[in-house]
Design a protein around this nucleic acid. Sequence first.
DNA 1: GTTTAGTTGGGACACATGTCCTTGTTTAAG
DNA 2: CTTAAACAAGGACATGTGTCCCAACTAAAC
Lengths: 188, 188
Amino acid sequence: MFQEASNFLNFVEELYTQDTAGVSLVEFNAKEMLMHQGSAAQHVFILKSGLCKISLVEENGKEYILAFLSTGEILGELELIRDEPRLCSVQALNKVEAYKLTKTCFLNLLNTDLKLNRLIINAYAERITNTSKKASFQKLYTSENGLQRILKLQETENIEISKADLSAYLGISVRSLNRSLKKLKEEE
Amino acid sequence: MFQEASNFLNFVEELYTQDTAGVSLVEFNAKEMLMHQGSAAQHVFILKSGLCKISLVEENGKEYILAFLSTGEILGELELIRDEPRLCSVQALNKVEAYKLTKTCFLNLLNTDLKLNRLIINAYAERITNTSKKASFQKLYTSENGLQRILKLQETENIEISKADLSAYLGISVRSLNRSLKKLKEEE
DNA sequence: GTTTAGTTGGGACACATGTCCTTGTTTAAG
DNA sequence: CTTAAACAAGGACATGTGTCCCAACTAAAC
């Protein structure tokens, strides 16, 4: 989720300024896809600026947003480590800049650089914690509680998420989201 | 979740046979707690044999089981890495044997041993994938679908999970679990 | 063997959410 | 400016799940 820009950014910016092979800087417009669910994994991205959503679509056609990713976060490395196709899609929600590392470059660094290992492990520990908490909360509380949380986060991080994305994040239909929004408005 | 015994076991058994300081072998009876949610984190466990559940209790008193852990899996290391209290509780479901590493020993190894780093990263990549898939599935499908999956897993892994634990894993009440079980039985 | 306490399963009602369709608004094309 | 298509919100009904309580069964204590 949203967190202070981690040392991933520092780490990769150093590589970039040293003209390391396999490291480049790329841009995406709002709505552009950085990654497609099910496709082969070739790169890792580290967000320099902007906001993305990471989501997956189930066989019944429904979309679930696992998290929103922002500056300093790494994405796409899971599938390189596991050597599997993309588990999720990633889409830019606004103008996004990101460092792009090739698979070869990333795996080489992972095998040799203890600092990168540490950054990955720290990021993963936080991600597992956040994913577990979100899963538990969304199953054991009503959508209204979850909605209050994401609306507060939206305000704190000064971002605006569409209704379609809000409902996908909460794992409910847009109809239900509208019900809860209306109810929250009436309770003010 | 359930996976082939990873090289965690090989890794720690080598440490154990070398009489490494901070490594011991411990046993737990069924129902004994290996870890308590909210308590300080002092150790890491690697399961040698047996089955555990890892769960957390929300403020509304409801319990959610994130996963069942079995032979070869590591547990309790998240909080050492993040230097935080226990996010979850872990309870033995049958007779459990586990290697126990002190915080100092574990962090020393993590800082120096690239092999352990690799094992941790691989395990985390799998855990994030599993936790994400479970969260998405449980929000976008009915409990009946989830129940079918866990019953199949129970059969495949030759284990028996209580109704209370099944409902906590699925994030539903025991009443709802009984409805789904009855419906599945009628559909046979 | 009896009594008490705990456990288990289901009925009934309430609440939360999904689905489908209608209406109104907005946007885009001609 | 008009028309058509797309989008958004809500009504109505259906389904899924939660809560509460009751009855029956099981286990433990005496």
